[in-house]
Amino acid sequence: MSKLLGDFKNGLWQENPTFRLVIGMCPTLAVTNTMINGLSMGLATAFVLLASEIVISAIKKFIPNNVRIPSYVLIIATFVTFVDYFLKAFFPSIAASLSLFVPLIVVNCLILGRQEAFASRNPVHRSIADALGMGLGFTWALLLLSTVREFLGMGSLFGFDVLGTSYQSMVIMILPGGAFITLGVLVGLMNLISRNTN
């Protein structure tokens, strides 16, 4: 049980994909202009990660070693197609604003990396714990980044105006430049925090 908890907590902070490992950067930067986009991208990625880790750890004995990477990519691409059609059917506005970055979950190195590093070596129950931790770790990182950007860039949270009309919004924060700078500062802060706690 403590082992499972360790697998779960690993992704939340110690090996957080965004702030510690710095992988899966394209969606992290591109769709964090509003909180709703950041949250839905995080959850979509977490779902694909969970589903593919379950399948791959369950059938890992049947996948020949030489063709394992193409097989993983095919399994991941199948779940991504599923998520894409699900979003288009039930949340068309979110699907429209994420547009290209839903199919690009296929090449998110976080997902392929976890299959190779974890799911292909561990039993199903531990893979589920790992996928949940990594998925939630990715989601909270995206949510934090999008909170900062939406708050400074538009003065709102989840689309609700909190700072009022007197706030002079910093438009750069929701443009590409602001994405890079915010993430840079946040990664720097996380480095500082983890160094001070050690």
Partner: peptide, 23 residues
């Protein structure tokens, strides 16, 4: 470069300034 910003963080900040220039 400040210790905490070495490596990836400073690269991201530079990329941000480059993105602004490309705008």
């Amino acid at each position: 470069v400040p210790e905490a910003l070495k490596g990836v963080p400073i690269t991201l900040i530079i990329a941000g300034i480059m993105a602004m220039a490309f705008m």
